[in-house]
């Protein structure tokens, strides 16, 4: 029996993976080099724009502080993301499965999405002061809507005849959800996670900036006070690394949980 897609493609894919990682790294290194040379030629002051050598050195010098605050920011991202994603998926399911829920909840969700959420930050600060709550709440609000939309789309895409099959098998609600609905919607839910999780890093940093005495946002403030532009850039590097790492973690989780996905 000859089944397409059965043969293993281990060897060529491994060397191609290496190439996929090496190529952008080389490209990055070339850009940094260009940056370094241009600044040196044009004689730009350090506090306006630091050369890569300066902020990469700062990165090494400040590694302890950067690691500490970077981890605190990551923790807030994870709390806020979870607090927004879980209700987002739950309401997405309700909206997809019930017309009534759609009529009641969807306008509300659109309203939440329309809010310029960052303006809520001062209010949250008044309510909760220098606690972690403003960060978590704001991140959750930003996460909630895209997760709702993506998971609702996932739950809606289920072929209605699958429900016929489920009912003819006397399936309980839980079995239908566990065996049919949730795995069917999982790819959409993951694609929502992947996009949203990167944005949430920015949200946490902004709130830390406003009301906190820790996290990358706080470190940004300190760097600006000291006109320490190389440190600012070092923070940028850490922040974007967190974003990329989280997106990669989502990818990895998806690959582990959804091995059937074509790649």
């Amino acid at each position: 029996m000859n089944i397409p897609g059965a043969q293993s493609a281990e060897c060529p894919s491994r060397s191609r993976n290496l190439q996929r990682i090496a190529e952008p790294l080389l490209w990055f290194a070339a850009l940094l080099l260009l940056w370094e040379v241009l600044l040196w030629l044009l004689d730009v002051p350090l506090f306006v724009l630091p050369p890569p050598s300066a902020f990469l050195w700062r990165l090494v010098e400040e590694q302890e502080r950067l690691l500490l605050h970077g981890l605190l920011t990551t923790k807030m991202v994870l709390y806020g993301f979870t607090a927004g994603a879980l209700p987002g998926v739950a309401l997405g399911y309700l909206i997809a499965r019930s017309r009534l829920a759609e009529r009641l909840l969807y306008p509300l969700a659109v309203f939440v999405q329309g809010l310029p959420k960052i303006t809520l930050a001062p209010l949250l600060l008044v309510w909760f002061g220098f606690t972690d709550l403003p960060k978590v709440i704001l991140t959750a609000l930003v996460t909630f809507f895209p997760m709702l939309v993506d998971s609702a789309a996932g739950f809606r895409s289920i072929d209605p005849r699958l429900y016929y099959l489920a009912r003819s098998a006397d399936a309980s609600r839980w079995h239908t959800f566990r065996h049919i609905e949730l795995p069917s919607a999982a790819p959409s839910i993951f694609s929502g996670c992947r996009i949203t999780v990167v944005v949430t890093v920015t949200v946490v940093i902004v709130v830390e900036w406003l009301n906190s005495n820790n996290g990358l946002g706080y470190l940004v403030l300190r760097a600006m006070d000291a006109a320490d532009t190389p440190l600012l850039f070092a923070i940028l590097v850490v922040g974007s690394t967190i974003g990329v790492a989280l997106a990669y973690a989502v990818d990895l989780t998806e690959r582990l949980l959804l091995p059937w996905r074509r790649r």
């Binding site: 005849r161 016929y164 065996h179 795995p183 059937w260």
Partner: peptide
Amino acid sequence: VGIVFQDHLLLEFR
């Protein structure tokens, strides 16, 4: 009862 539909209706994740 067992039901078979036109386009197999298999779950892609199983």
